[in-house]
Nucleic acid binder design. Structure first.
Length: 1025
RNA sequence: GCUCGAGUGGUGGAAUUGGUAGACACGUUGGACUUAAAAUCCAAUGGGUAGUAAUGCCCGUACGGGUUCAAGUCCCGUCUCGAGUACCA
């Protein structure tokens, strides 16, 4: 019989698919469309590991299933190929990032001579049904010219809050011409200057440009940014984790710099409400909601001499509870309001705060600190004097950097007031909650507790309109208004790096000018080094041909001194620029005239299924939603949301392997009795005393990590080792007895050393010889094995990473078991969304299934399928599998499908089924999961076309109908035995049948039936007693 | 601290709207085949307990309660783990 030869089968069909372009998607089709997208990978030098394909396999199963179901499927793949690692590699080796990137995608050899398989080749081996004709690479000028175009679109837009959409900037200009800033409700930073139409006309062109810049959706601003000296660039908030850079873990400091910003805050409310209609995991939506951080409240002004201190509060109803105010130490009014008496104390405190890093401040939130400024502000309603403090629990970056402190209703204010109780400037806490004791802690619930000591608010509560009443009153007296605040900050869009999209921007009189879209792309210039310049400019500052000629409309040499030549922008765009719109480019990937045609976008609409990791929740997923909303407002796309449904696959973790090394430190004193040399005269011996410390870290490796074999006589061995140490090559001249070794102190410690997982088998046995070859520094180490002579490693689950030597490549699995087995096994591991460690222990079970499946279509002579009718049992097996697999794919429960395939094949094998009536549909069922074997079987079954478009078998209930059902019979809820009972009888007859049964009678003997529960088709339960 | 999610055999994990807990697979044990190994096939496999056996009985889904004829599933409380977030006024 022909054996299952995965290598031949898989190579054959991968070639067939490529040659015939089997999975080419058409933009015109009478079929319904389905767009399945994976988050495209960054092509790193480490290559694809078994974690990458997990999501790709899932989306591929859905794509193939949808094709069987008659959909026109778009299933593309590409590369997010701009990014830091290639640039860091370039800095180290001088190799152009473009070259590294190409090698990492297409395969080749890296600078150090390592063979790189290439992402594309690795993916091809897994048999994905991608339409490779639509591949995109964000670092390709053909692609990024459109990323540059979108930047220009942002520059040429402003946000009209009245219409709640982005509008062309030309519209704003004409409104300024007609009526100045009157009736303009734009999303901008606070407090822009107001002007009339006449004033606008009187402004110079430059002044007008500067004003417009404040309204644009991308704008230049001097802001506090996160500067990462280690990477030499600024970072966005989502690129910082725990105060250090996400990539590389370098420290980050605050620094004021002029940067391109993206006014994502204008879209905050739409980004928030848009979440409701999305079919995403609730956890991801929650992360985005928290990130956007909407809070509804009011702005309240407190007068202090000529100054006005604005605060934001979510509890304007507690306004009469204001006991003091706190400003952030960085608040601009601090210096102006501080009294002479408090000046020194305030200065000292400000210095101390400034010296603390962001990280320290984050880590240490419990310590209370602050200083009284000596100043008093006027309460806007009661007119009372309110002392003003500064304290670092108030953040300069949120709200207005000042708070009205209501200790009775806020924990932090309460703690602050208590801490400084009795000091000058700290009054007794005002309690405005009727019948609530606030001596121990603040009262924070937003409930019906009535207010007191609150003038007109007395008797009202948060839930009965106190909030609205307070805001109304504040507006009436002109000291406040209702306001909604968002935590979402505008995004920094400049990076001081080389390997990113250049801005289509040149500077004229210090003002940024956009280059016309017809002259795009502005391609990355060549530089001699990928480092900042001597004077701290970004790497593009090294380019010698990096100026814009407005006459020729092209990039020219910096030496060109004509008047029409201007300097180009030196920053590049961040990593998320290219990935924010790529889902649309796939729709029309080869369009050379526009980013995509309106027809293509209207046909494909948006992504029906997006699969990727949840780590992009606050980065990519938020930014791309923002850009899509902009493209929508400008009429470029018909949808408001890019990804309708999203599944987040769990990370596949590596199982690191460790050799447990015994780290032994020793310390001893000894006397070297020189007189003990054989030749010497005993009487003339001189004793010299030594004291020695040392360690023998690489000397012993111990199996299994279960302690270091206490029976083993280490001390003897160590003594020997000491001896060797002392004697060197002259050991024959000495013997240990000739040393008087005293006070030996040993200090044992187990140390884990990462070992390459490929040197370890499924039973955790280490190939010691291979290990010694891999780590020559351990060649002399004694490996102390278990009794059976094996050396076991200990295991730990960690993220897969090159540095932990726990990376498993899918290539090895494809070689050994085949792509179909890999695909099935990755799905079989568990629910898609769950994180799980990679472990190949169970793969033989899946491989065994593949062989059994193959065998079902073969006998000893070869391929054998009969045209006889299948048995009812086999039809039942087939149809219950059809139903299960169909339901599973619709619910993304891929792991259970695999087990239902196994059940089906086990059953059909037992039934000796070889009927075409069953085996032909079975091949189609399996095809989304294991496409290569399915194609082969399909072709053996006599089909000339690919199986990919064969219709999915239709489930027919009639094959599952049975005349009897096995009922569990329980007594007091406990199942005792089962009975086969007919299905088509009434409840009463069923009860009679059961009661007539002998076993039932036995159970009921001597007992009384209190109640009988019969659920037809489910269960029979007697309550007895 | 807050928000969200999760705790099921030796292991990965199944279990429709509450209705036979442990599907499927790994591992383990025993057996067949083989000179032997691998491969393949067969059987057993949650724990305890009684019995020569057939077969019973008891306990079991992190822990403690509750609702129900019936709870892994619903409700209340506790513990543990994971993820996100963090002085957001």
């Amino acid at each position: 019989m022909l054996l299952y030869d995965h290598k031949a089968i898989e190579a054959k069909w991968q070639k067939y698919w490529a040659t015939n372009k089997t999975f080419k998607a058409s933009n015109t089709s009478g079929k319904p469309k389905f767009y399945a997208l994976d988050m495209f990978p960054y092509p790193s030098g480490a290559g694809l590991h078994v974690g990458h394909p997990l999501g790709y396999i899932a989306s591929d199963i859905v794509s193939r299933y949808k094709r069987h179901k008659g959909f026109n499927v778009l299933h593309p793949m590409g590369y997010d190929s701009f990014g830091l690692p290639a640039e860091q590699y370039a800095i180290q080796t001088g190799q152009h990032p473009a070259a590294t990137t190409k090698t990492n995608i297409e395969g080749g050899t890296d600078k150090s001579g390592n063979k790189i398989a290439g992402y594309r080749n690795q993916m091809d081996r897994i048999g994905f049904s991608f339409d490779w004709d639509r591949e995109v690479r964000t670092s390709s000028p053909d692609y990024y010219k459109y990323t540059q175009e979108i930047f220009i679109m942002l520059f040429n837009s402003w946000y009209d809050k009245d219409l709640d959409k982005a509008q062309p900037i030309s519209l704003l200009e004409s409104r300024f011409r007609e009526s100045g800033t009157n009736n303009i409700n734009a999303a901008t930073d606070e407090d822009l200057r107001q002007f009339t139409a006449a004033e606008w006309s009187a402004f110079t062109d430059k002044e007008q440009q500067e004003i417009l810049l404040d309204y644009r959706l991308t704008f230049l601003a001097d802001t506090e940014v996160n500067w990462c000296p280690g990477l030499g660039t600024v970072l966005a908030n989502d690129e910082i984790v725990n105060g250090v850079s996400e990539r590389g873990g370098h420290p980050v400091v605050r620094k004021k710099m002029r940067q391109w910003m993206m006014r994502i805050s204008a879209f905050a409310e739409r980004l928030l409400t848009g979440l409701e209609g999305l079919d995403w995991a609730e956890s991801i939506k929650e992360i985005q909601r928290n990130w956007i951080g909407k809070s509804v409240g009011a702005m309240v002004s407190f007068q202090l001499d000529d100054h006005k201190i604005d605060v934001f509060t979510t509890r304007p109803d507690t306004i009469y509870g204001v006991t003091f105010m706190t400003l952030a130490p960085e608040h601009e009014l601090v210096d102006q309001i501080t009294t002479a008496a408090q000046k020194d104390a305030v200065e000292t405190y400000k210095k101390a705060t400034a010296a603390r890093s962001e990280r320290e401040r984050m880590a240490d939130v419990k310590t209370i600190s602050g200083v009284f400024t000596g100043a008093y502000a006027r309460h806007p309603l009661s007119g009372e004097q309110v002392p003003v403090w500064i304290g670092d629990y108030v953040l300069a970056g949120y709200g207005t950097g000042a708070v009205m402190a209501v200790p009775c209703g806020d924990e932090r204010d309460h703690a602050f007031a208590n801490y400084f109780a009795g000091q000058d400037g700290m009054p007794v806490i005002k309690n405005i909650f009727e019948g609530v004791d606030i001596s121990e802690e603040a009262y924070t619930p937003k409930d019906k507790t009535p207010l007191s000591n609150s003038d007109f608010l007395n008797g009202m509560s948060y839930q009965t309109g106190a909030m609205a009443a307070a805001i109304e009153k504040l507006e009436e007296v002109g000291s406040g208004k209702g306001k909604t605040n968002y935590r979402l900050r505008d995004a920094v869009f400049s990076r001081q790096r080389y390997w990113g999209e250049p801005f289509p921007v040149y500077y004229k009189d210090g003002l940024p000018q956009m280059i016309d879209r017809e002259h795009l792309p502005i391609a990355l210039p060549e530089v001699d080094e990928y480092l900042p310049t001597e004077d701290g400019a970004p790497p593009l500052g090294r380019a010698t041909t990096w100026s814009w000629c407005t006459q020729e409309n092209k990039v020219v040499s910096n030496d060109d001194d004509r008047d029409c030549v201007y300097p180009l922008e030196l920053n590049t765009m961040p990593g998320w620029a290219g990935s924010s719109w790529y889902m649309f480019r796939y729709m029309d990937a080869n369009n050379e005239n526009e980013m995509f045609s309106a027809e293509a976008q209207e046909y494909w609409n948006n992504v029906d299924l997006y699969i990727g990791g949840s780590e992009h929740a606050t980065g990519h997923l938020l930014y791309s939603r923002f850009w899509v909303k902009l493209l929508h407002d400008l009429g470029k796309v018909t949808v408001e949301e890019p990804f309708q449904k999203m599944i987040n696959q769990g990370m596949i973790l590596g199982e690191s392997a460790f050799v447990n090394r015994l780290s032994i430190k020793f310390k001893f004193d000894f006397e070297l009795k020189l007189g003990l040399f054989e030749k010497m005269d005993k009487d003339k011996s001189i004793a010299i005393k030594f004291s020695q410390e040392g360690n023998l870290n690489t000397r012993f490796a111990v199996s299994d990590g279960k302690g270091f074999f206490p029976d083993h006589d280490y001390e003897k061995e160590i003594e020997n080792a000491i001896l060797e140490n002392l004697d060197g090559d002259n050991s024959n001249l000495f013997s240990f007895d000739k040393y008087d070794v005293k006070n030996v102190v040993f200090n044992y410690n187990e140390v884990k050393i990462h070992t390459d997982v490929s040197l370890v088998d499924n039973y955790n046995n280490l190939n010691v010889e291979a290990f010694k070859e891999w780590r020559p520094d351990y060649a002399a180490t004694e490996f102390i094995t278990a009794e059976d002579g094996t050396f076991k490693v200990s295991r730990e689950v960690e993220k897969m990473s090159k540095s932990k030597y726990n990376v498993v490549s899918p290539d090895d699995i494809c070689d050994q078991f085949g792509a179909d087995t890999l695909r099935l096994y990755e799905m079989f591991l568990g629910p898609l969304e769950q994180a799980k460690p990679w472990n190949t222990a169970g793969i033989t079970g899946v491989y065994g299934f593949m062989k059994k499946l193959w065998k079902l279509y073969h006998n000893d002579a070869g391929f054998s399928v009969s045209d006889e009718k299948a048995s009812p049992d086999s039809m039942k097996t087939l149809h219950k599998t059809i139903k299960k697999v169909q339901d599973d794919i619709e619910n993304f429960s891929f792991n259970t499908s695999v087990s239902s395939f196994m059940i089906a094949v086990n059953e059909l094998t037992a039934q000796k089924c070889n009927s075409r009536e069953v085996l032909e549909p079975l091949a189609v069922l399996v095809s989304p999961y294991a496409p290569h074997i399915a194609e082969e079987l399909w072709s053996l079954l006599g089909h000339n076309e690919s199986i990919s478009e064969a219709p999915f078998p239709v489930f027919d209930e009639k094959h599952l109908v049975e005349s009897s059902k096995t009922y569990p019979i329980s007594f007091n809820g406990k199942m005792k035995f089962t009975l086969d009972l007919p299905v088509d009888v009434s409840k009463e007859d069923l009860e009679k049948l059961v009661l007539d049964n002998e076993k039932v009678q036995q159970q009921l003997e001597g007992k009384q039936i209190r109640k009988t529960i019969i659920v037809p088709g489910k269960i029979v339960n007697f309550v007895v007693g």
